[in-house]
């Protein structure tokens, strides 16, 4: 009964989303058939297009996992975007400072520093919340502006490539490139890292005492306090892990795709990650699936733009509609009333 209702709801959502998409395609006077085939070919049509979806999903999975740890602990991290930038900056700094190190040392060090950069950046709002009760929703958003613009300054000043007129860092050493796992595509080891991270987050949250404490704090801070679980300490831990995974996403983009720091390395991954966490119900498996779906939507819609002239921003509209529909049916609405 419950299952059937969920299934019915999913069908309704799909129908509504398709209707919105069709309306938009017709509104811009494009050929719906051409648009649909362009979308499908772009997302699943070839080996290459599938690999592009996976490349796109990698940072979403990592940042989405980070966001989910925060959400489950009651730390509403809206700052994954800024944490991605900070992680990317930290990883780049490692490459610029120690260009001579062997790959086996340099690459893990860069990823680790990316994690640490994002984690520390996120731990500041975490500290402000646990110590002074400042709303992390506000502070993390503000921290996004700071982080993104700090990167803008860096790539124009100390980290700028002197031999190039555009604001970007020099190329990073070859030893710091994440290996491509599927030649000749761009698919890199970051995907494997993301999947391992999903497994690790699952294990942490559902099998360890630390994860149990964080979940307890997220569900009932007062009850946790009474049970002897420190709410501030767990908020701080969750904020650091949350930002750390987002930072790792940034480091993975630098070492896997761009191989240098530049403005706009993240076209809103940090915000889309929130949607991935929401659609995936904060469960690692769900986040992987949601990230793949969102990535397919985005990659497919840019292909649709090329094929039929429908603006790819349609993917954002569809995501917006999706989130609204999902929020309209929160499971806790069904609570038994007495």
């Amino acid at each position: 009964m419950r299952f059937l209702r969920t299934l019915g709801f999913a069908a309704l959502v799909l129908l509504l989303v398709l209707a919105v998409a069709a309306a938009l395609v017709i509104a811009v006077r494009a050929d719906p058939g051409k648009a649909a085939s362009g979308f499908l070919r772009g997302a699943f049509g070839s080996f290459y297009s599938i690999s592009e979806v996976l490349v796109r999903a990698t940072p979403l999975i990592l940042a989405g996992l980070g966001v989910s740890i925060g959400f489950r602990t009651g730390f509403f991290n809206i700052g994954a975007e800024g944490q991605i930038y900070l992680g990317a900056t930290a990883a780049t700094a490692v490459g610029l400072l120690f260009p001579g190190l062997p790959a086996l040392v340099l690459l893990p060090l860069a990823l680790l520093c990316g994690f640490a950069g994002g984690g520390l950046w996120s731990a500041v709002p975490g500290f402000l919340k646990s110590r002074f009760g400042l709303s992390e929703v506000i502070t993390t958003i503000m921290f996004n502006y700071i982080a993104i613009n700090v990167v803008g300054i860096l790539v124009r000043s100390v980290m700028k490539d002197p031999s190039y007129p555009l604001p970007m860092s020099p190329d990073l050493p070859e030893a710091m490139h994440l290996p491509v796992i599927l030649e000749p595509t761009r698919l890199h080891l970051g995907l494997v890292i993301a999947l391992v991270a999903a497994l690790a987050v699952w294990f942490l949250m559902s099998r360890t005492a630390a994860g149990f404490r964080m979940r307890a704090v997220g569900l009932n801070p007062r009850g946790s306090l009474v049970a002897g679980i420190s709410v501030p300490a767990n908020l701080l831990l969750a904020s650091a892990l949350s930002g750390g995974l987002a930072g790792l996403a940034g480091a993975s983009e630098i070492t896997g795709i761009h191989h240098r720091l530049l403005e706009g390395i993240s076209p809103g991954f940090g915000y889309v990650a929130i949607i991935a966490a929401l659609l995936g119900r904060n469960h690692p498996g769900g986040i992987v699936i949601a990230s793949l779906g969102i990535a397919a939507l985005q990659v497919g819609s840019s292909s649709m733009q090329r094929a039929s002239g429908v603006p790819s921003s349609i993917s954002w509209i569809i995501m917006g509609v999706l989130v609204l529909l999902i929020l309209a049916r929160r499971p806790d609405r069904d609570r038994v009333a007495r």
């Binding site: 307890a216 569900l219 009932n220 007062r222 009850g223 946790s224």
Partner: peptide
């Protein structure tokens, strides 16, 4: 509901 239990558990 607040002190003794975590209702979602």
């Amino acid at each position: 509901h607040h002190d003794g239990l975590v209702l979602g558990f």
